[in-house]
């Protein structure tokens, strides 16, 4: 149910986007909506991050995954159990760049006393790494459309990405990894009853959305003869605030379908689970140093509570305490 609705939604959105190819619609789908989407995306992201950052962190609660820093002769594990800001940054870097916690699942195990095998869990890490890193590189590659002249680093990245030199135009490695990673993440969600049980429409929709964007992008590059000059003109126009109606009309329906899905993605991510990429930086169990006993953490909303003070305690038990030889304050 959740799967079908999500698939239908993405399909519908794509078709809606192809309307941009219709005469006169270029202005809406090629200019108005992209600006709107970027606005919602950036605004939404700021709002989302602020909605977290504005909430205080009352206690310092890192999850420690290695030896603490205590006695000087005991080797501590600063990247798994950071003791100061710098090592906490190191831990975050491992987490953000290499998904350290997901990688924890890769463990060699001895099965049935003899055989050494690896659990199947590393696949999640591999799939996630392939998808996320390719996505980043694909984003950077697209800068060649938005910028004129193209920065050298983008050109370099593009060349490196196409090093296999298969196909014409060259098929990028990241394109393949991106689609393969997505396909794995989707297949995994569909195949495992356990995951199907916990998955919501909000888990399938982004997967289909990314797939839609990826496939339409691949299509644009490799199957349809896209008018790349017009596309570049539209894109550069967007970044430079100068628009050319001829280029907008010539860009083609498929291009608008692709662009519209990107717009949807931009507008959707701050309000969905995709915002996890910003959330991970703020996670108190990961970004805090385990310096609890050496540096006092202050709770900004601390308030006095009702306690049972010592004198009340002694008042209740004074005679018994004296009888048992426990020293008391008041005789």
């Amino acid at each position: 149910m959740n799967v079908l609705i999500s698939l239908a939604a993405v399909g519908g959105l794509f078709l809606l986007g192809t309307l941009g190819g219709a005469p006169g619609m270029g202005w809406i789908f090629g200019v108005v909506l992209p600006y709107l989407a970027v606005g919602i995306g950036i605004g939404g992201l700021i709002w989302r991050v602020m909605s977290w950052a504005n909430v205080p962190v009352p206690f310092r609660i890192p999850t420690t995954c290695g030896q603490q820093k205590s006695l000087p002769w005991i080797k501590s594990n600063p990247l798994e159990n950071p003791h100061n800001g710098l090592t906490a940054v190191g831990r975050m870097a491992l987490e953000v760049l290499f998904f350290r916690s997901l990688l924890r699942n890769t463990k060699a195990e001895v099965i049935d006393q003899r055989r050494l095998v690896y659990t199947s869990a590393p696949w999640l890490w591999i799939g996630a790494m392939a998808f996320h890193w390719s996505f980043l590189i694909i984003l950077v590659r697209h800068l060649r459309l938005l910028a004129n002249p193209v920065p050298w680093c983008v050109t370099f990245l593009q060349r490196a990405d196409g090093f296999l030199e298969i196909g014409l135009p060259v098929i990028y490695v990241t394109t393949v990894l991106f689609l393969a990673g997505l396909a794995y993440l989707l297949a995994r969600r569909l195949a495992s009853p356990q995951l199907r049980y916990i998955s919501l429409a909000g888990d399938y929709f982004p997967l289909f959305l990314f797939l839609g964007i990826g496939i339409s992008g691949f299509w644009l590059r490799h199957w349809t003869k896209t008018d790349i000059v017009s596309v570049k003109q539209v894109a550069v126009g967007l970044s430079g605030f100068s628009f050319d109606s001829d280029a907008l009309a010539a860009a083609g329906s498929l291009f608008y379908g692709h662009l519209f899905l990107v717009c949807v993605l931009l507008a959707y991510f701050p309000f969905s689970k995709l915002s996890h990429f910003a959330g991970v930086f703020l996670s108190p169990t990961r970004n805090m140093a385990n310096s609890n006993r050496s540096v006092r953490h202050v709770n900004p909303w601390d308030y006095p509570v009702k306690v049972h003070p010592y004198d009340e305690y002694e008042d209740e038990f004074r005679e018994k305490m004296k009888g048992a030889g426990v020293p008391v304050e008041k005789e």
């Binding site: 977290w52 495992s192 915002s275 959330g279």
Partner: peptide, 15 residues
Amino acid sequence: RSFKLFMDTCVRCGA
């Protein structure tokens, strides 16, 4: 912040 963030960021990856 922990509570707010943990309500929002789960992607149900199943790890």
